[in-house]
Computed example of a mutant assay.
Amino acid sequence: MDVRHVMPGRYHHGDLRAELVRASLDLIAEQGLQGFSVAQAARRAKVSPGAPYRHFADRESLLAAVARTITDQLTGRVRTAAESHTDPQAALAAAAGAYTGYLIERRAGLHIVFADGLQGPRHTELHERTRELIDQFLLLCLSVSTSPQLALELLEQLLTQAHGYGTCYLDGFFRRHGYSADLVVRKSTEAARMVIRGYRERAE
């Protein structure tokens, strides 16, 4: 690494690209997407404002790398939650709760993955990883649905609901009522169970 790009008094060891992604994730977790910028990520990583541009062409490129990390982490969380249950309905409900939990913890979810500017052909790797995440949810929905159409409707309902629970917590709505993050995750999971049961009854 060219040490001229490191802030005075500090020498950055390791992979600067990965460090900038980690710094950006931390900024988003602390301040939301509005707290994210290349300059702020550079300050958090303790490098000069110009250093990130050796790895990322612009803010959009860095945000795309952050979004790829989010999809990877979410995919892992969802898979772990689902695999802890043998019953398909319980597995799907747990996956929805895992999404809510991640959103609360990291302030990161599909709103960042689908942020403005990340949908073009520059970001095919992000699109592929996002598809893997959505497909994981869709396969769980198919396992409890009687038709692909119902599975797609259920997927839409559960993702919207899981994201909504997390957003309401982050926006302070649930906290005003004294709800802890763990309680909100449990409520999200239970709400998912009720929706799944409703879709099952609708199909019978």
Rank of each mutant, 00 (worst) to 15 (best):
A108Y: 06
T100F: 03
P121W: 14
L150V: 09
G109N: 10
G101Q: 00
V144N: 02
G109E: 09
L155G: 04
F114Y: 14
R131N: 04
S143D: 10
Y165W: 15
G164T: 07
T130K: 13
G166C: 01
L138Y: 14
C141N: 14
Q149L: 02
L133N: 03
L138N: 08
T146P: 02
A151Y: 02
C141K: 08
Q119C: 08
F137M: 11
G117Y: 08
T100E: 08
H123D: 05
I112G: 00
Y102D: 03
A115I: 02
T124H: 14
I112C: 04
E125P: 08
E128A: 12
T130M: 03
L126W: 13
P148L: 11
T130E: 10
E156N: 11
Q149V: 04
L154T: 02
T146V: 11
L152F: 11
T100H: 05
T130G: 06
L159H: 07
T130N: 10
G101H: 01
G120V: 12
R129F: 05
G101C: 04
T124W: 10
L118V: 06
E156A: 13
I104R: 01
I104H: 02
L150T: 12
G166N: 02
L103F: 07
P121L: 13
T167C: 04
F114L: 09
R107Y: 06
A115S: 06
L118G: 10
R131S: 05
G120T: 15
D135S: 15
Y102N: 03
E105P: 01
S145K: 02
T167L: 08
Q161H: 07
L133V: 06
H111R: 09
H163K: 04
A108P: 07
V113Q: 08
L118S: 09
V113W: 09
L150P: 04
L154V: 02
